[in-house]
Design a binder for these strands. Structure first.
Length: 419
RNA sequence: GUGGAUAUAGUCAAGUGGUUAAGACACAGGGUUGUGGCUCCUGCAUGCGUGGGUUCAAAUCCCAUUAUCCACCCCA
């Protein structure tokens, strides 16, 4: 128990970290090209932020949050998603007085108590972006465009973009009535949770996990068929913008985001190759969230992208991630004097920008070479009593096995030429 | 939340009630007190996820538990 990471969590070991660093660097690169600035928010927030923001009838808030009381009696929650905290920071720091729209990106861990599975962790990581302050569909198109261009940069080609409109409070009111009408004679068979949802938030019944509710909901009216004129105009505009950008999509009326704050645009980017948890990126518009959390009425749109799933997709697609794990030079030293000389030379080499290593276990020369080989050293320099006396060392090219004699004073110069 | 499968060393594994738990790779040391990738030798599970039970005897059978994987659902 003590030596097991908690269920649903995973160590990211040194031989995997380069993959994370690679996708992170590409993500930052594309965010910079698109004009998004990084924002960092705390790992935990007041629980009420998520209740208010995400919605207290959602699965996330009802049964997936890691919530706890701190010693000061505050009820806090490890963030289950990235948007609400950014919204909170936006309001608290009065960033709404900045030039709008503002565009942020973030790289965060998220926490949800779920049953772990391939591509579904209790602690997982997300790339996210948000645009606050534009109600124009060009913003939605830019958010989707960034995601698609990011995948392209990573050479991922097998993804599908699904879009939908889930309406606004205006049309949703009418849809609620229609939906409740549809569910009316099924009410008695609904699960207990959904019975309470029936009045409070009937749309949530559509994504209830209970098998009974799932079958009852088959054939239910789709939001997309009941959106108001305003939302319809927006949806048409979004499609036109995507067409203009040359981005292919599929209208999928089945997308119902699991968070209450979404309005109008909802989208998912899906892989068919990584098992059941195929949604790599999900997002949409949330025009009322900022006001609902206590800020000035400001529209927003953004996405969250699962990094674990992204890496799964890349693995399935056999995309090779570049790894720079070679070192420039290894110093093999023999004897106390040479060790002394070696630790100083290694330090000097490092100060000159070389990736330089030496044996830290005072092993036999044979093993030092073996070690150098393992470390993928490009060159190895042997230093023993002879070298110290003659002030000449041989630099061995580990690929060709060629050795060149150089004066100790010329080591840095020679290595620079060889590099 | 529902259903299914699995669990033996760092990794992949053999073993299906009977004395000291195969083998391979990896790792460590050595053959060679100054030269790696090849080769040869040696070492490496008082232990078979954990806890109980059955039995003269359990990695092997039974129960429970935990973890992992997969599907459904949901989602990132």
């Amino acid at each position: 128990m003590l030596t097991n990471a908690p269920r649903g969590t995973k160590d990211i070991l040194p031989d995997q970290v380069y993959k994370w660093q690679y996708v992170e660097s590409i993500f930052k690169e594309i965010c910079s090209e698109y004009g998004f600035d990084e924002i960092r928010t705390p790992t935990f927030e007041h629980t009420d932020l998520f209740k208010r923001g995400v919605g207290d009838t959602t699965d996330i808030v009802e049964k997936q949050m890691y919530s706890f009381d701190d010693y000061g009696g505050r009820n806090l929650t490890l963030k289950p998603e990235g948007t609400a905290p950014v919204v909170r920071a936006f309001i608290e720091n009065k960033l709404y007085s900045d030039l709008l729209p503002v565009k942020y990106f973030y790289i965060i861990p998220c926490f949800r108590y779920e049953k772990p599975q391939a591509g579904r962790m209790r602690e997982f990581h997300q790339f996210g972006i948000e645009i606050f302050g534009s109600d124009n569909m060009m913003a939605d198109a830019e958010v989707i465009g960034l995601a698609m261009d990011f995948f392209e940069k990573l050479s991922i080609i097998e993804l599908e973009l699904h879009i939908n409109s889930i309406g606004c409070p205006n049309c949703r009111e009418g849809y609620r009535i229609i939906l409740k009408e549809f569910l009316k004679d099924k009410y008695d068979n609904l699960c207990d949770t959904c019975k309470t949802r029936y009045e409070r938030n009937p749309m949530r019944i559509l994504d209830c996990k209970s098998e009974v509710c799932q079958t009852l909901v088959v054939g239910a009216p789709k939001m997309l068929d009941y959106i108001c004129e305003d939302c319809e105009i927006a949806f048409v505009a979004l499609k036109q913008d995507l067409d203009a950008m040359g981005i292919e999509y599929e209208v999928d009326p089945g997308i119902v985001r699991g968070l209450d704050y979404y309005t109008k645009t909802a989208f998912e980017i899906i892989s068919k190759n990584i098992g059941a948890q195929g949604t790599v990126c999900g997002g949409g518009r949330y025009d009322n969230l900022i006001e609902q959390v206590g800020g000035p009425a400001t529209p927003g749109v953004g996405f969250g992208m699962g990094i674990e799933r992204l890496l799964l997709v890349m693995e399935k697609s056999n995309i090779v991630i570049p790894r720079d794990d070679e070192i420039d030079v290894f110093l093999a030293v023999m004897g106390a004097k040479a060790q002394n000389f070696g630790i100083n030379l290694t330090r000097q080499l490092r100060k000159n920008g070389f990736k330089a290593q030496m044996d830290l276990k005072a092993r036999a020369i044979k093993h030092q070479f073996k070690y150098a080989d393992r470390l993928k050293a490009r060159h190895t320099i042997v230093i023993g009593d002879n070298e110290l006396e003659s002030q000449m060392v041989s630099i061995k090219n580990m690929t060709t096995s060629e050795q060149t004699m150089v004066a100790v004073s010329d080591i840095i110069k020679t290595l620079t030429q060889l590099r």
